[in-house]
């Protein structure tokens, strides 16, 4: 085949039939593995942008309602445990680090290291969910769950740590807006964590079977992007829910 025929064929089909030269994971419509990986990254980022809009809407309503029912949001925020939020932020950041190291292990084709980093990420992710479950349980016990067992009682007379949190009854009722957004945001975030942990378990089984350490990095890398995104959402939830109202 001379170069002219080859050029014509390339222009027509977009790629050349390599036959056995293809790695098995290279899809037919891509020229080579880097191009396939670039397309996968692009697609993943488009998905993450829709996620930014989704969580962005929640953040936006949080900011608006915080201005709207300011004393209720401050009092509601005072009931959260800062130590739990800080611990969870730490767990997530370390898990982002282990996941980044996992991507590195996939790129350098080290199967055992990749499995180790995935397992570490799984443990840290589950640790985060356990702390979150503990907090939610605490809020249930305190009657802070709107629609299920909410009571404004705790916001009428001040608390041990915040004796000045004495809201009038109508404003105390509005702490339900804070807790609704709190459960919506931390709940959606935790749902993303559960999905992430589930996907990561599947990836772990596949890596155990020998996948993704043969140059086919895109699935691991894209999962990494998802995991880091979920980390970023928490990076903003932490100050907004736990920190900024402490002295107000």
């Amino acid at each position: 085949m001379d170069s002219h025929t080859l050029a014509a064929q390339t222009a027509e089909t977009g790629h050349i039939e390599h036959g056995a030269d293809h790695p098995p994971f290279l899809r037919h419509h891509f020229e080579n593995v880097p191009q396939q990986r670039e397309a996968a990254t692009f697609g993943m980022w488009l998905f993450l942008l829709t996620e930014i809009m989704f969580f962005g809407g929640l953040f936006c309503s949080y900011l608006i309602f915080r201005n709207w029912y300011y004393p209720a949001f401050v009092a509601g925020s005072h009931t959260l445990h800062i130590w739990a939020g800080t611990l969870n932020t730490t767990l997530l950041i370390v898990s982002s680090f282990t996941m980044a190291m996992g991507v590195h292990a996939a790129e350098t084709r080290m199967r055992k290291a990749l499995m180790g980093w995935i397992i570490a990420t799984l443990i840290l992710g589950c640790g985060f969910l356990c702390v979150k479950a503990y907090e939610w349980h605490d809020e249930w016990v305190e009657h802070h769950v709107p629609g299920l067992n909410f009571s404004p009682e705790g916001f009428l007379h001040g608390t041990k740590d915040y004796p000045d949190d004495k809201l009038p009854l109508d404003m105390a009722e509005k702490t339900q807006v804070y807790f609704s957004l709190y459960f919506a945001m931390t709940g959606m975030h935790a749902l993303h964590m559960v999905i992430g942990v589930s996907l990561l378990t599947i990836l772990l089984i596949q890596v155990y079977g020998g996948k993704y350490v043969n140059g086919h990095v895109a699935p691991i890398e894209n999962f990494g992007l998802y995991w880091h995104f979920v980390d970023i959402v928490w990076i903003f939830l932490f100050p907004l829910l736990y920190l900024i109202s402490r002295h107000q």
Binding site: E31, N32, P34, Q35, R37, E38, A100, H104, E107, T108
Partner: peptide, 8 residues
């Protein structure tokens, strides 16, 4: 169309 991959 295909970017040289950089291993961080």
């Amino acid at each position: 169309t295909h970017h040289a991959e950089h291993i961080v």
